[in-house]
Design a protein around this nucleic acid. Structure first.
Lengths: 325, 325
DNA sequence: CTAGGTGCAAATAATTTGCAGAGGC
DNA sequence: GCCTCTGCAAATTATTTGCACCTAG
């Protein structure tokens, strides 16, 4: 919750400013990857030969309490430490050959973990997912075409990709819904939303291109945030269902469901992360979806008031489409 | 691969029969749960005060090599050991309060792990999924209504549940397909398959009831194998798609896809486990699905030969159903 | 007889702690 | 001056190893 890289804010139990501690923390933060206590001692000793191992251990513990560092266990019989002010709760791929590890996020796995915990009435606090095996480099002998790159950029890239896919599927959904809707006011709502999606889509694409300029290889770097819904966008299923034939009320209701799902997803992810571009993207998008959601709920209520509740779906496919032309 | 509880077969490097080792192994196998080396030393010493800690460590290592035990790391700074001759590659829920842990399988998580590994070109050998938190008992203070029960029975129960759900959805699929199919020979294939599914379904249900007799609380024990496809059966999606309108060839092809998915799932799971009722259920079922699959492929080829390849779907829903009556 | 199994004590390895002195507020 | 930080050395914990002895094949 706290713990920006801004160190002035890091005073967990009102500790004193201390040159040694600050030195250790700085060296730790300058590194990336997963350091063992011993790695850190070595690094520190290059700068200052007079810092004891005990102090490093104590400072590591302090950093964990302060939320700067997280203790991770890769089953080596000792702990390692990683930065924790970005992307909490990520998972690891660990190469048993070169002992390097790379990180990833998977909202899909997280969702399953939540479901399983709930099914077992278990209050999950945190979870560890570690995939052990051999990395590409160790297997093929040659360096991978591109390295992982900076986490913040990757996270922002994947956030934008998901947002764009969602926007695209939303555009498809609203365009299709507008075509199928008979009620004039309802149709206008869908038309307006479609226009809004289109505009926002181009904004997101611009933003994505800006991101690419900051790192020319960004697009070819490996996926960091795995999320299955990303492939076709969160409205894809809804858009498909529209074709099965629904009445105006049902179309609005499906819009509500899609927006709600989308809002929840973006909010949940956005809230989890420390200040970063990706977080911002998620939260902005969540807010937009919330607005759409509220609009749709209002319209749904208004329509039900005008028509009474209608449950029967419109006949399949073609007739409705024809009627709209 | 080896490692039945039958200890006579456990001679990894041609070790000698030794009273001490046998004693230690027996005590270990008599326990369930996750023992630390120290726990085991305590248990051993109750029987024989003259066994040294070093021997216990050496025997644990021997058991790991022999495949009797698996070393697990719950981040406590020491290792624990669990039996490994059943359900390899399970995952853990770990209570940080009472330090007990319970096991589960999730083919859904496994599938995601495989996908992620593939996306990162990582050759995954094994994976660790640990959910840390507070168990129901520690949270509410009272004992859970039912305990976990014996793993073998749970695994068999969940295997049967999945098989039954698949059988039900298969029955639905073939019944529907038979109704929609115009080609006489094709219709007969579906009718026969539907009849077979019905018969096998009742067999599975009988078997399930027999299982319940062995443990009256079995049905209320928590899920052990989590698999989302289990809810509606592996043919559910196919059965739904049939309603959208398909021609005879497409119906056969969908049957092929469903049977292939089902066959793969049951085979994969069945092969992973040591001899147990659950394994047997999975493998029997996989074999049945393979037979159906082969039959459908034959029929598909025959139909294409008779009709030429037809790609256009039949018109939506009602007309096809009408035609079949 | 001999390779492998066993006990004991000592070694290792990661980490923690007691204590006396140093340093910031 | 007080309280916390720090270094050093000793302690602790989990596990491994060297070595002499024992035991089954």
């Amino acid at each position: 919750m706290t713990t920006l890289p801004d160190l002035t804010r890091l005073k967990p139990t009102g500790g004193k400013r201390s040159s040694k501690r600050e030195q250790i923390v700085n060296v730790f933060l300058r590194q990336e990857g997963h350091l063992s206590a011993d790695d850190l001692v070595d690094l520190i000793r290059r700068e200052d030969h007079r810092i004891s191992r005990a102090t490093v251990y104590r400072t590591l513990q302090w950093m964990v309490d302060a939320g700067i560092a997280r203790k991770v266990d890769f089953g080596e019989g000792r702990f390692r430490f990683e930065h924790s002010y970005r992307q909490p709760r990520h998972f690891h791929l660990i190469c048993t050959n070169c002992h390097r590890s790379s990180e990833f996020l998977s909202s899909d796995i997280e969702a399953l973990i939540e479901e399983i915990s709930a099914a077992r009435s278990f209050a999950a606090a945190q979870s560890v997912v570690q995939i052990y095996g051999t990395c590409e480099e160790c297997r093929t002998g040659r360096h991978p075409a591109v390295d992982e790159g900076h986490k913040d950029l990757l996270f922002a890239r994947d956030a934008l990709r998901i947002a764009i896919a969602t926007e695209r599927s939303g555009l498809e959904f609203y365009t299709r819904a507008a075509r199928l809707t008979r009620d004039g006011r309802g149709r206008k709502v869908f038309d307006d939303l479609a226009a809004e999606e289109k505009e926002h889509l181009s904004k997101l694409e611009t933003r994505y291109n800006e991101l690419l300029q900051r790192d020319p290889q960004l697009e070819s770097r490996p996926t960091f945030l795995f999320f299955k819904g990303a492939a076709n966008g969160l409205f894809a299923e809804g858009a498909e269902r529209l074709l099965k034939g629904v009445n105006d009320q049902q179309a609005l209701m499906m819009g509500i469901r899609c927006e709600r799902g989308s809002h929840r997803f973006f909010k949940k992810y956005g809230e989890r992360f420390e200040d970063s571009e990706g977080k911002q993207i998620f939260l902005e998008f969540a807010d937009e979806e919330r607005q759409h959601l509220e609009l749709l709920i209002r319209e749904y209520r208004a329509l039900v008031k005008r028509q009474g509740r209608v449950r029967r779906p419109r006949r399949h496919g073609a007739p409705a489409a024809r009627a709209a032309r």
